[in-house]
Design a binder for these strands. Structure first.
Length: 966
DNA sequence: CTGAAAAGGTCACTCA
DNA sequence: TGAGTGACCTTTTCAG
């Protein structure tokens, strides 16, 4: 029996309640607040199979599992002894790989607690379910995060005692106090103790038991890399997996406790969990005029006190200033103030810190070394491509990936080598380097495609015997093997139809991939290659993803035929439409599919339009998108400048009546603003600004401060100074900076050029950490957007997950200087070039980011406009999977009006600015899927690659990643 | 007794 | 062609 052990409460479980509660891995897999309102069937759909990550169909053999794993376990009960593994028992078990090794799947089943003895017949008692909810809620309200599943320890203590499974058997140090004889099982004995000193011996399932414990409260930013490393120093995928599984809980918890319904009194009176930062008293908002108990202050407190998110925002800084030049506005005050005693940080007494900088020192000093515990050399990288693993995928697996929305390209063998060969001269062999399924999102094209397919079918009937089992020998021959075609046909497409017509591109070694048989006029299949194609195509990478300016994909659903690429779980201009069509096409099978519209993991609705770039030829001369850096001389990376597109000329300015989309439905830019409406909008503007200042490090005032601190050689920037006259600008030195803002001694650079050239691994590590901390801040920002709290919890999560990278992109624009193709990471003093960024296997992602930064920076927006733009992006009613679009749309309309009002006030001489700004939204919608696609690419090519857990969670990588790591 | 929920059975399908 | 898989179905068990 799988036992959920409760720290301090396990003995409270009655014998009736215990079996059900105890056997559930509910904590990791289901949000009780959601579960409270749904039936068991819906409950199951919220929960993943603990073995492979597929959608659970119920509680089978003691755990939540899918039908496949249930059946496998049933069959294996009698025949598992014959299983063997050719990989020393180290195979990953995921939705896509679960059939590749029976032994490892069996071990995984056992590891997560599957057991014949765990079977439970009959329905679950209503009382059991209620009590389970109550207990979990109670524990959470009390800050006791020790409700956790235990898994293998209790179900198979004998195996662990024998060291039969897992390299180390028991955790280092042996059996915890209580040992196997502990009344709650051996894992219960472990609860209440801090994490054992190393997880190398932690068996599968055991790690889950560690989650929620204060010692593990670091989240990704503070998540000790040591814990993620096995005894051999290698990444322990199981640990990564389990951690990532906990992220849903983290986000939901943060939403629930921090921005939603946390009682302010809680912060003042309750004792925070052990290890939490001390309470913050009398915190002022960073925004002028808000010095009370405004939501932002509460939110900040929330961020401070959350045992998880809090430390995610912890910046990596050290207590020593190796450069010795730490005299600045913030640190000077800090360093000269008395009472700087970090020992106070665990003092929960309500004493007020000596000054506001002490608070940050206190709060973060204990976190400051976390990042140091994870030297970059130990960070996982994803530079190597596991071609063998990739090519082993059977068609059923690929079909499953397609159905689940994961982008796939069929390259069964020796892909990369062919790609390299192609790069060396075989340029007629088109090998896409990233997983991509190219589909047609235009009805007309699709129908044409279907016609092609019909013709193909006729032809195929006459030549089936010839084409059945071998790909065409011609490079662009139509006709895929029936099996492969059938798999592709299972891929549900918009309009309730399916694509069945593909071209096969075949290399000399027999490898192939498939693309639609029809292309827009003038486009070749090579057009679909991502930018980092090894083919070295002369085609510009930007051409793939740039829609026509002003006639954006999101604004003009009826735009001329384009191709789209199914790829991202992120937002897409066609989400609503495609989701609707897709739902209509789903059969009962899909009830348990990730495609289920009810599923929060449904990633397939999203699609981004890929078009040639019609305005490519209309670029204006280069300019600095970063006004504060615009005085920079010529770029040291001119070779990349061709990838940076310029904002179009005024002839491309969109007319406000032109853009139409789900996002802008019901928005009338010409609607007169009544005095009442203006008052309302001004409050919205104020509130959004307030939150922005409390969550964003990169307000222009702070950029100025950091610029002078880290980059004094850059000198004054007049254009930056010109942005400091907004009515919402204020002297940041007189208010609390947001959590994690670097006010302490200047840390050493993470990308220190004196330590050698910046390589891909350094960049990967750097960005992993930075993006993770940004994610936390943006979650906090989103939570406090006016109207956000009123949304359904699942909608909140959906909005954050789909809009987060877009806000990240907006914020990224404040650190890029396109004139020099350089990023100035203001908060750490690091700088790197676009060339350096390209060392990461992220394709043209950074080209897109720089391009966006260029566009936005040219508009000379101020903080309030950045804030409102970010809020508009988050509150997008056209995201997939939303329940209450109407409410979200209403909120977004107000935000749009507020943005319009603010821009009209701030830029009275530029009546097109608002329209131009809106045209950047489709750009955002393209960048986000590109990011996700690159991550997916990495995941497929490098199954063992470790992503920051928040990354994985936010960008829907967790399911695959979690399942793959076992 | 009813209905919920899990165990177990069946069989079309995939793949080697 | 046989073994394995997993979606679907039937049977069993149990709460209410």
């Amino acid at each position: 029996m799988l036992i959920l052990a409760f720290h301090n409460v396990q003995n409270n479980l009655d014998p009736v309640f215990a079996p059900t509660l105890i056997t559930s891995n509910y904590w990791d897999y289901c949000d009780p607040s959601v579960a409270d309102n749904v039936g068991c069937h819906e409950l199951n759909e919220l929960i993943k199979c603990m073995v492979c990550g597929d959608t659970s169909t119920g509680f089978h053999y003691g755990i939540h599992s899918c039908e496949g794993c249930k059946g496998f376990f049933r069959r294996s009960l009698n025949q598992h002894e014959s299983y063997t593994c050719s990989n020393n028992g180290q195979c990953e078990i995921s939705l896509y790989t679960r059939n590749q090794c029976q032994l490892c799947r069996w071990k995984k089943c056992l590891g997560v607690g599957m057991s014949k003895d765990g079977s439970r017949l009959g329905r679950r008692s209503k009382r059991m379910i209620e009590k389970m909810h109550e207990t979990i809620a109670k524990q959470r309200n009390q800050g006791d995060m020790t409700v956790k599943p235990a898994g293998f320890y209790s179900n198979h203590p004998d195996l662990f005692a024998q060291g039969k499974y897992g390299p180390g058997g028991m955790p280092p140090g042996g059996m915890p106090p209580g040992g196997m004889n502990h009344p709650g099982g051996p894992q219960a004995a472990m609860l209440g103790h801090h994490m054992p000193p190393g997880m190398g011996g932690m068996p599968m399932g055991g790690m889950a038991a560690m989650y929620g414990h204060p010692s593990m409260a670091g989240g990704m930013g503070g998540f000790p890399m040591a814990a993620m490393l096995g005894g051999d120093g290698q990444v322990n995928p199981q640990v990564v997996m389990e951690h990532m599984r906990s992220i849903s809980t983290i986000i939901k918890q943060e939403l629930e406790q921090g921005g939603q319904d946390r009682d302010p009194a809680y912060n003042e009176t309750s004792t925070p969990p052990e290890g939490s930062p001390p309470p913050i008293h009398s915190r002022r908002s960073s925004v002028t005029g808000c010095q009370d108990t405004c939501p932002s202050a509460t939110m900040q407190q929330s961020a401070m006190q959350s045992p998880t998110i809090t430390s995610l925002s912890t910046p990596p800084f050290r207590a020593v200033d190796p450069r010795g030049n730490g005299v600045d506005l913030y640190s000077a005050v800090k360093l000269s103030s008395p009472g700087n005693n970090s020992a106070q940080r665990h003092d929960t007494s309500p004493s007020v810190p000596q000054n506001k900088y002490d608070k940050f020192e206190e709060e973060y000093s204990h976190c400051a070394y976390r990042s140091e515990s994870a030297p970059s050399s130990e960070q996982p990288t994803a530079m190597e491509v596991d071609e063998a693993a990739y090519s082993r995928l059977p068609m059923s697996t690929i079909s499953k990936m397609l159905r689940s929305g994961q982008p796939v390209i069929l390259i069964p063998k020796d892909v990369s080598r062919e790609g390299r060969d192609a790069e060396k001269g075989h340029r007629d062999i088109v090998i896409p380097p990233s997983p991509t399924v190219v589909v047609i999102d235009n009805q007309k094209d699709f129908e044409a495609d279907m016609d092609d397919h019909d013709r193909e079918e006729d032809e195929e009937k006459s030549s089936r015997s010839d084409s059945r089992d071998s790909p065409s020998s011609s490079k662009y021959a139509h006709g895929v093997s029936m099996k492969r075609r059938k798999s592709l046909e299972e891929f549900p497409l918009p309009h309730g139809k399916q694509i069945t017509s593909y071209s096969t591109l075949q290399g000399p070694s027999g490898q192939f991939f498939q693309i639609p048989s029809s292309f827009p006029q003038g486009m070749s299949p090579a057009t679909f290659l991502p930018s980092h194609s090894p083919l070295g195509s002369p085609w510009s990478p930007m051409a793939m993803t740039r829609p026509p300016l002003a006639i954006s994909s999101s604004f003009m659903p009826a735009s001329p035929p384009h191709l789209s690429m199914a790829m991202s779980p992120m937002g897409s201009p066609f989400m609503v439409h495609s989701a609707k069509m897709h739902h209509a096409s789903m059969d009962r099978k899909s009830n348990h599919s990730p495609l289920n519209p009810k599923s929060p993991h449904n990633p397939l609705h999203q699609r981004v339009r890929s078009t040639p770039d019609p305005d490519k030829s209309e670029r204006s001369p280069s300019f600095s998108p970063s006004p504060h850096l615009s005085k920079s001389p010529s770029s040291p990376h001119q070779n990349h400048k061709q990838f940076i597109k310029e904002e179009p000329g005024l002839q491309d300015e969109p007319k406000m009546e032109t853009p139409r989309s789900g996002m802008l439905d019901n928005f009338n830019p010409n609607e007169p603003i009544t005095p009442e409406m203006k008052t309302k909008l001004q409050k919205i503007i104020h509130d959004v600004n307030k939150v922005y200042h409390d969550t964003c490090h990169y307000t222009f005032r702070r950029i100025k401060f950091l610029r002078e601190r880290y980059f004094p050689e850059l000198g004054e920037d007049e254009e930056l100074n010109g942005r400091l006259h907004s009515k919402y600008d204020h002297d940041c030195s007189k208010c609390d900076p947001p959590p994690g803002f670097p006010t302490g001694p200047i840390p050493p650079r993470e990308l220190d050029p004196s330590e050698g050239p910046i390589d891909g691994q350094k960049m990967w590590t750097f960005f992993s950490n930075k993006f993770t901390s940004q994610i936390t801040r943006i979650v906090n920002f989103s939570k406090m957007i006016p109207g956000f709290k009123q949304l359904d919890r699942e909608d909140q999560i959906t909005l954050i997950k789909t809009g987060l990278f877009e806000v990240l992109t907006i914020r990224f624009s404040t650190v890029v200087d396109v004139a020099t193709n350089t990023v100035y990471w203001w908060t750490t003093g690091d700088t790197f070039s676009l060339v350096d960024a390209h060392k990461m296997p992220m394709g043209n992602l950074f080209d897109l980011l720089f391009d966006f930064g260029q566009r936005v920076n040219r508009m000379m927006l101020d903080d309030s406009e950045y804030a409102l733009m970010s809020a508009v992006v988050i509150m997008s009613a056209d995201r997939p999977g939303l329940k209450n679009r109407k409410l979200i749309r209403e909120v977004q309309l107000d935000l749009l009006k507020a943005l319009q009002l603010e821009i009209s006030d701030n830029h009275p001489d530029d009546d097109q600015l608002f329209a131009r700004l809106l045209t950047t939204i489709p750009k955002l919608r393209e960048i986000s899927p590109e990011h996700t696609r690159r991550l997916m690419d990495l995941k497929i090519r490098q199954p063992g690659v470790s992503f920051p857990p928040l990354h994985a969670e936010i960008f829907d990588l967790d399911k695959e990643e979690a399942a793959e790591s076992s």
